[in-house]
Design a protein around this nucleic acid. Structure first.
Lengths: 121, 121
DNA sequence: CCTTGACTTAAAGTTGACTTAAGCTGTTAA
DNA sequence: TTAACAGCTTAAGTCAACTTTAAGTCAAGG
């Protein structure tokens, strides 16, 4: 799979895909003899994981550390801790999101009551 | 209430509070004769709302528009729509967060299985 | 042969959201 | 009364995470 196809598939620009690889957010992608990236299942899996985590708000730094450990095949305990830490953050975020949505619901109800009385046009 | 007290109360620096006011994220705060800000209930309410929305990920721009409309006492319909739009975004984000947390749970389970076999130290 | 799409490094530019600096003034404690 | 403090303003600076530009090379397809 070419970088262009992967870009299409996940909605990430080719520039960003190369950037991710450069900074170690995903492990080096296998190349064809001519040096062109040839994404396999595994690389796609990494891209998917990063896309998912990043869009959920996980910072780049912990992900880079995690990827480095997986590549070095070490730090099992540390890897688990990184995942646990990030999960904690996401759980807190989800909780905060819920209460903010409640606040919005409350305000929106207020407008629903106000508006029908005015608009007629 | 001085800016310092408000800063303390909501965990927002005085710099940020002034910045918020300057860009219209909260309406102008009342002043004492000497020009020093004197936050009342209403201003504190705005600070709280902004803190809540911002930390949930709501963009500054729509909030500025909303605040401007409230101040001009117009655009009831538009205000409601802004709130509806932001709620939609937060709901989508909450859903995405949930699935990402699931993915993390899955990966963490994997590490829980791997680790006990090795570590004995 | 030439266009297309891939590749490289390195650096500058962008965006969103603050933060800091510089240079004031006004109130309070020693 | 004088020095420390908290406040004031505007403009410039910072940071993360990209994005774009420069300035090329390389190789396959029409």
């Amino acid at each position: 799979m070419t970088i262009g196809e992967v870009s299409e598939k996940y909605g990430i620009t080719t520039d960003t895909l190369r950037y991710y690889e450069r900074i170690g957010l995903i492990p080096p992608v296998p190349r064809k003899k001519n040096g062109i990236r040839d994404y396999d299942e595994e690389s796609c899996g990494w891209v998917y994981l990063v896309k998912c985590m990043r869009s959920a708000g996980v910072q780049i730094e912990p992900l880079i550390e995690y990827v480095a450990l997986v590549q070095a095949n070490t730090g099992l305990e540390r890897r688990k801790n990184i995942l646990l830490e990030q999960r904690e953050k996401l759980l807190a975020q989800a909780e905060h999101l819920r209460s903010t949505i409640d606040l919005l619901n409350y305000k929106i109800e207020h407008y629903k009551e106000m508006i029908p009385k005015k608009s007629r046009k």
